[in-house]
Design a protein around this nucleic acid. Structure first.
Lengths: 188, 188
DNA sequence: ACGCCTCGGTTGAAGGATCAACAGCTGGCT
DNA sequence: AGCCAGCTGTTGATCCTTCAACCGAGGCGT
């Protein structure tokens, strides 16, 4: 084994900042959402993903792909959301294996009410401090790292990018109204 | 309330990449550490922080500061590490309130064995894909966001920066040997 | 000396995430 | 037709994290 390539001082600085961010950002975001609407960051992500898809419906697998999570995690969370009446699950008629998750009207309302506060929080933490150039740099850097992450189940391929029936992407909205749900899910 | 300042397309891209990173990076790092040594990312951070301080000792409060965690979380984790024989807790003789956490020889060994693999993982995910300029940009951007995060208990001030008795910082090593422990703790 | 407040730390309960095991369905192969 | 492999999804156990309650010790004012 070669001598371990230690980190340079510059790399250390960057790493510490990054790890600090990664450790604390989710907590802060969660706290805001939790206070304002009893939602987890991930709950929100799931609801908002559904809200942006045709018929507010997605199979569990696709939803897992879009939200970059394992099927297991998603199943637990959707079970919870179903108890609150924000999502319904129905077995698919065409394929006995798949189950469809549908956002209810109540669920839609929940997302709509939650969105503004969440966007505001994101804006104030992330974007208000950065200029346009840095936003672009951030995208480049984060995207690079993401690609270097070992592929995980349901994460990359078949995941976010391809999940929509194809034509509609994050910029435009599915089949209906303008994007009531914020464009904040991590569709990548 | 003003019209919600939505995210621009560029911001959305950056945000999705960032949130994806923040969601998956900890898991990936945890998985590597877990496989290789049964440690959590946070466990490692705690052990390595101790390893870099004089006498391998720190009060719980200071340790919480250095590792950017709540005292509660730290207490649970140290209890676990103590059970494994990697850390010992002793009440301070000077102040009956504080308790000192000390890294044992076994603990030191654990950190030393764990470090190379961890550094390698970090390097391969984060730095191998970035050029020097981007490393600098990453630091600037992440540091900015960190500052904009609402202050949390024990996080910012009195935390990492000031925690060391002062003169020695991450680049150099505490009182003794060269840095056996990797420079990876998020001392910020 | 007394009371009170704050600090440092621990604990137990509750909620979230992960892992491994499992069950139902489909589709392909023979 | 029958079987097997693989996909889709669920569940329960376990671990980690957070939250709120709590306790003892020190410091301060009177």
């Amino acid at each position: 084994m070669e001598p371990t390539p230690w980190l340079t001082a510059d790399e250390q600085r960057a790493w510490r900042a990054l790890i600090g961010l990664v450790t604390r950002l989710p907590g802060v975001l969660d706290a805001q959402l939790q206070r304002d609407s009893g939602l987890t960051n991930f709950d929100y992500l799931v609801l908002s993903a559904l809200s942006e898809h045709p018929e507010r419906t997605l199979t569990m697998s696709r939803l897992a792909g879009v939200s970059r999570s394992s099927l297991s995690r998603l199943s637990h969370v959707v079970a919870k959301l179903e108890k609150r009446g924000w999502v319904e699950r129905t077995p698919s008629t065409r394929d006995g294996r798949t189950t469809l998750a549908v956002l209810t009207d109540d669920g839609m309302r929940a997302v709509q009410e939650t969105a503004p506060g969440h966007v505001a929080a994101v804006r104030s933490i992330v974007f208000d401090g950065l200029d346009d150039e840095q936003v672009e740099q951030l995208h480049a850097i984060a995207a690079t790292m993401l690609e270097r992450l070992p592929d995980q189940q349901g994460a990359q391929r078949g995941g976010a990018d391809a999940s929509c029936s194809s034509s509609q992407r994050f910029t435009s909205v599915p089949h209906r109204k303008p994007p009531v749900a914020p464009p904040l899910r991590s569709t990548r």
